[in-house]
Amino acid sequence: MAMLEIRDLCVNYGMIKALKGISFDVNEGEVIALIGANGAGKTTTLHTITGILSAKSGSVKFEGKELTKTPAHKIVRMGMAHVPEGRRIFQQLTVLDNLKLGAFTRNDAAGIAEDMEKIYGRFPRLAERKTQIAGTLSGGEQQMLAMGRALMSRPKLIVMDEPSMGLSPILVSEIFDIITSIRKDGTTVLLVEQNAKKALSIADRAYVLETGNITLSGKASDLINDEKVRKAYLGE
């Protein structure tokens, strides 16, 4: 059984069909990339998985449990964290308060302190800026904070929406290195990216989303050499 099973998922925005019955799996320990153009339904997919949006029909199963009727705040408790598009950190709060909010579902003070140290180890710049108001961080630092905040819930699966968006090439590489290291630590990753090349280079498998349908899927290493993918998403 896959860790995350999406079956025939349909999501509407009013009259517009954003997802037209997609199905895919994420297995434990994998990095899965979901690639596609603007408006293909990538963010909608992630929002439906983590409960921000509700599905019209179909199912989302996480470790065998149905999520489509579960409110977002309970899904976090089941072990799924979401790094949203545009980071959505709490701009008016300090870095420390943002991280504490990431651990909102937990009550083990010792474990939280331990994870906080781990995150400061992984993102030394956040440690330096602990007491700074998050809105004053640079784009790259805000992305790191969003990732650190998500990791504070000790997720089994972390879904990330466009983590490289708006960052300089050096920072983009840094963010992808961090994703690889998160996976090494045993967290499964579902990654939505516009930067298809980078995403495919670190993913195990990938799905291509086009206007609400999955049109291609397979090993990332195969898709990166696929003629259609190269033309449409890798700009070659």
Partner: peptide, 24 residues
């Protein structure tokens, strides 16, 4: 307090607060 921090989070971004596990 934790509840207070949840209030601040909801005040700034309801969706992001939910993603932290806050019951809005």
């Amino acid at each position: 307090t934790k509840s207070g921090r949840a209030m601040l989070a909801v005040s700034e971004d309801k969706d992001a607060a939910q993603l932290m596990g806050v019951n809005v």
